[in-house]
Design a binder for these strands. Structure first.
Lengths: 131, 131
DNA sequence: ACTTGACCTTCCAGTGACTGGAACCCTTAT
DNA sequence: ATAAGGGTTCCAGTCACTGGAAGGTCAAGT
């Protein structure tokens, strides 16, 4: 299977597949006629795994770990769960930071008239001119 | 005032201040004795504004807009509010995406024993082997 | 006077995870 | 024969810094 077809089948853009190969996340693809990359069903499967893990917020480095675990039939499910739980914590921290930002901005906008006059508490606050 | 002092006073690292200058977010600083950058109270004020805006999640490009608005005494508060409200929407979208990831991972971890055995529903799911 | 250490300078490279684009090759259908 | 639509490589750009090298400057202590 050519890279384009793999891209549509897995949702991973061709460019990204080549990128994954270049950084060693996936092994170098087999080549047909000395130029085109050729992919097997196993490759497809791997790419889908990667795609899904990336969607869940795992970094490429983490996906590498997960892939290794996936391939290792003697793995401990513990190892996988540790990574997943750590990711939840990380996501929660990001959400908390975003919530804080949102609250602050919302608070600011609540006091801004948003009309054609120049007076603006948002700018005043950013400038440190607390009223 | 030297760049180091400005850094401690504003919370913006010296390196970052130079970077801001290099990308034109702040004007080139005055120089003392033909080498050290020298900052005024106005510069401090601007850097604090930038710092706070960045903390709230505004991109450097957006901070540039906000700075221009701040300096423009004939601005309309509308313009500022539009930027702020758009940022809230953006943050909400990010939060929603993170919540989705979190829910998915939490769901997966709930079914993983996390012990020394290899069986792991997390990997099964990533691989697309839905049970 | 000399040295030490803290500060400053510039410039280049690296981060993460792609993405765009140029320049070129290959295949297939018309 | 040619055009469209694949594929290939490699380099540069994104965003917002950050690290590090190599060197200049300054104030204080010996």
């Amino acid at each position: 299977m050519n890279i384009g077809e793999v891209a549509t089948q897995t949702g991973v853009p061709a460019k990204t597949i080549r990128y994954y190969e270049s950084v060693g996340l996936i092994p170098a693809a087999a080549r047909r006629g000395n130029s085109y990359r050729s992919y097997s069903q196993t490759d497809l499967h791997t790419l889908r795994f990667i795609h899904r893990a990336r969607e869940l917020g795992f970094s490429v480095a983490e996906v590498e770990e997960l892939l290794a675990l996936w391939r290792n039939k003697r793995r401990k499910s513990q190892a996988v769960k540790v990574i997943a739980l750590a990711k939840i914590v990380e996501i929660e921290r990001k959400i908390a930071a975003l919530e804080t930002m949102k609250r602050s901005i919302r608070h600011l906008t609540a006091h801004c008239h948003g009309d054609t006059r120049p007076n603006c508490p948002i700018l005043d606050d950013l400038a440190g001119d607390r009223v």
